[in-house]
Design a protein around this nucleic acid. Structure first.
Lengths: 182, 182
DNA sequence: CTCGAAGACTTCAGACCTAAACTTCGAAGG
DNA sequence: CCTTCGAAGTTTAGGTCTGAAGTCTTCGAG
């Protein structure tokens, strides 16, 4: 009689109840917002990971392509700059660029006017993959928000922006590794 | 005349504008919600990381302590179960438990009734660190939501829960590595 | 009662990241 | 000019995770 069908992970409701049980004096309202944010982000990253996998690239590589495109003309950045934007160390960028050059997603050249500098540019293939990935992401995101009316979407976006502003003021140093993909 | 004070990462507003520039047909409303979610999560993880560092443990270790406490009496779980709850592989759990046993945060024993099973329990020190970490997290979270009225908090929590439910239905398989900390 | 299959954890190899040391080039000062 | 400092990238060492293979235990079929 296996009455334990599966331990698995507790649902959001179960987790909030467990917090109440183990630590009185915790606002369930706050806990719900924070936990839901965290779980949502995890699920989103899983979804993005599947989409980029279909493109034959990794999540990390898609991030680099995104940064290059969003940088605008002429779609070129140095490794250090890229590292800052993605929130990782210059050493990690070196390796990532190595792989992406080998796969034909980006180019790496030396700046002729300043030979200690390196310039990373996006290739046609890289840009095509970015666009393809963006299209898939858009479908997912639109589906995610399907249950919210336009007014609700606006309100949600406004509240999240307010939270973001507050936390950005509290920690002005941009430093932030971990998952990105926004 | 360094009119480029710092490349840094683009602000949320700049990023949304860049998306509009590079890809027509993207709903800015949706983009704002998704990007803000992602950035918020990154900042929260940075904050949690600092707090756990003050306790002398890593973010990953705090996650394990949290899972054990939230599991409730008798605060014991097997490595496989823990791995499922944290969204990582059994192999990773083995190593993590190794470290935590060495630090005196958890205990590892064999189940006497089924000697292929292992049971991980939390120590007094582990429980104390969890509680300390939770107190610090609570302060941060309360501060984060300070600009929202009680009504807004409830509404935000409700909307996020709705989104979470939708994405959980879409991907029933819990699989999700990457940052957690909820 | 014995054997095979399944389950639970661990071990091993490979991937990717961080932190720190190192290399190279360019710019400012004597 | 020559020297020294600083900036940008790369290299190296070490740590954590994933995926696959391996080990040990238990349980059911014959």
């Amino acid at each position: 009689m296996a009455d334990t069908p599966g331990p698995a992970e507790p649902s959001l409701e179960e987790q909030i109840a467990a917090y109440q049980r183990e630590f009185q004096g915790l606002d369930p309202q706050v806990e719900r917002v924070v936990s839901a944010l965290s779980r949502l982000n995890r699920r989103m990253n899983v979804a993005y990971g599947r989409q980029t996998a279909e493109l034959g690239i990794s999540n990390a590589e898609w991030e680099v392509l995104k940064a290059l495109v969003l940088a605008g003309e002429p779609y070129r950045l140095g490794p250090g700059d890229l590292a800052k934007r993605l929130g990782l160390t210059p050493a990690a960028m070196t390796h990532r660029i190595d792989r992406m050059v080998a796969e034909g997603l980006v180019t790496r050249e030396r700046d002729e006017t300043n030979r200690v500098r390196v310039i990373v540019g996006i290739t046609e293939e890289g840009r095509a993959k970015w666009l393809d990935g963006l299209r898939r992401a858009t479908v997912f995101e639109e589906d995610l928000l399907q249950d919210l009316s336009p007014a609700e979407r606006a309100l949600l976006g406004e509240m999240l922006t307010r939270l973001l502003r507050r936390v950005e003021e509290a920690q002005p140093d941009a430093g932030g590794r971990l998952s990105d993909l926004d």
